Simulated scan of single mutants.
Amino acid sequence: METMFKTQDKREGKVAKAIEEQTSKLPSDVFLWASIGAMTAAAILQIARQKHMSLFIGQWAAPFLLFGLYNKLVKQRGHDSMDKE
């Protein structure tokens, strides 16, 4: 059963490859500043007593950081190693 998993084709799909090519062009700081901006906007909205909008905007911080992490991994690891061979 182990040999079955080793021989499977594990290349990236066309859509994932296209997304990685575009997002790898962005500096990692973009996602960090977007996250900080979302937290700042949420704090301002909280002070302005707009609780629902504050919670909505505040939830954007974590996905921005995850996008930044994905972006960093793509830059460091590159595309699928099988495509480079």
Rank of each mutant, 00 (worst) to 15 (best):
L45A: 00
T7C: 10
Q46D: 08
L65A: 14
H52E: 12
R49S: 08
I44A: 02
N71R: 09
K25A: 04
Q50R: 08
R49K: 14
M1R: 10
L69M: 15
M1Y: 10
L26S: 04
H79Y: 09
T7A: 15
T23H: 06
V30I: 08
P63E: 03
D9Y: 06
R49L: 04
Q46W: 06
A42I: 01
L73H: 13
W60M: 14
L66N: 10
E85V: 15
G78A: 03
F31Q: 00
I44E: 01
E85Y: 09
A18F: 10
G13Y: 01
V74H: 09
L55S: 08
G78Q: 00
T3A: 11
A43V: 03
A48Y: 00
S24L: 02
R11L: 06
M4F: 08
D83K: 08
T23E: 07
L26K: 03
A41L: 03
R77I: 13
K25N: 02
P27A: 10
F31P: 02
Q59V: 08
L45N: 00
A48D: 01
M4T: 10
S54D: 01
S54I: 00
I57S: 01
K17V: 12
A41I: 02
I44D: 00
E85G: 12
A42T: 03
K14P: 08
D9Q: 07
A38H: 05
I47Y: 11
E12F: 05
L32Y: 07
K10Y: 10
P27E: 12
A61W: 04
S24C: 03
D80N: 14
F56S: 12
G58F: 02
F64L: 14
P27T: 15
E20A: 15
R11I: 06
I47V: 11
K17P: 07
S24R: 05
I47T: 10
L69P: 08
V74D: 10
G13M: 01
W60I: 12
A48T: 00
T3N: 13
A38V: 05
L73I: 13
F5E: 12
Q76P: 06
L73K: 13
E85R: 12
I19Y: 11
A43M: 05
A42L: 02
T23W: 06
A41Y: 01
W33Q: 09
W33S: 06
A62D: 04
I47Q: 09
Q59D: 13
Q59T: 14
A62Q: 06
M4G: 05
P63F: 06
L26C: 01
